[in-house]
């Protein structure tokens, strides 16, 4: 019976559609909010440092051309020096940012490894229910993406916000009037994306380890 054959081939599938992955990992993150905030805080700090560093130069660049000579003097005397009439990050700034991202990457791998280890039993259970290795990876990767997005966005806003606030206090209203909103938004997007990237890099190894475990071994671990 051809009908029966079809039914059988449908029967044989094991699936976890992305819509379910999105729902399950979002709920998991919400239910474990404070625990995941600890993991996420590393990303917040990295994104904040990065976006603060670059935001200062972007804002100065926007203000500089519109500033009168009194304000320009004020900016120069505050220790900011334009190169070829433009403000931009120095080699030292970039070096610091790279270093901070490296430290963050190590921190994230560590935090994710801890978070995944805490959930070995849950992973074992999922596998008993018929989850494939890649379902486990999917779930962890998406959770990490959420964490990256959340931490990255929060950190970027924090960094850019701090840059705007400090420069405003130092140089006054022109900073707000000539704020290069578009460039700052681009910075927000970029540094959030970087945080997502970092978070994904951090979770890859722990998720891979978790997904490959025999269910019996995963279940044996203490919660």
């Amino acid at each position: 019976m051809s009908d029966g054959f079809m039914a059988k081939s449908i029967d044989r599938q094991i699936v976890l559609p992305w819509s379910q992955v999105i729902r399950i990992s979002f709920n998991a993150l919400r239910a474990r909010f404070f625990r995941s905030m600890i993991t996420t805080s590393t990303l917040v700090l990295a994104a904040a440092f990065l976006s603060y560093t670059f935001a200062v130069y972007i804002i100065l660049e926007g203000v500089w051309s519109a500033a009168d000579s009194a304000l320009q003097d004020k900016i120069l005397s505050a220790g900011f020096t334009p190169a070829d009439g433009h403000f931009g990050s120095t080699a030292k700034d970039r070096w610091l940012v790279v270093l901070s991202l490296l430290v963050c990457a190590v921190g994230i791998v560590n935090a994710q490894l801890m978070a995944v280890t805490e959930r070995f039993r849950e992973i074992g259970t999922l596998k008993c229910l018929g989850a494939l290795d890649r379902f486990v990876i999917k779930l962890f990767v998406l959770e990490a993406a959420y964490q990256g997005l959340l931490g990255g966005t929060a950190g970027s806003i924090l960094g850019v916000g701090t840059a705007v606030a400090t420069l405003w206090m130092r140089f006054g209203l022109p900073v707000l009037i000539h704020l290069p909103a578009l460039d700052l938004t681009a910075l927000l997007v970029k540094s959030s994306a970087l945080a997502v990237g970092l978070s994904l890099i951090g979770v890859m190894y722990p998720a891979w380890v978790a997904a490959r475990m025999q269910p019996a071994i995963a279940l044996r671990s203490e919660p």
Binding site: D11, I14, L16, T125, G130, L219, P223
Partner: peptide
């Protein structure tokens, strides 16, 4: 594991972050 065998454990092993109905339906989603 999904279709042929149903597992019950001493420690229940429900997924803590999911509700009762979500726990029960997960194997069916798979």
């Amino acid at each position: 594991r999904c279709r042929k065998i149903g597992y019950i454990f001493q420690t229940f092993n429900l997924i803590q972050v999911m509700t009762a109905i979500e726990n029960v339906t997960l194997p069916m989603i798979f």
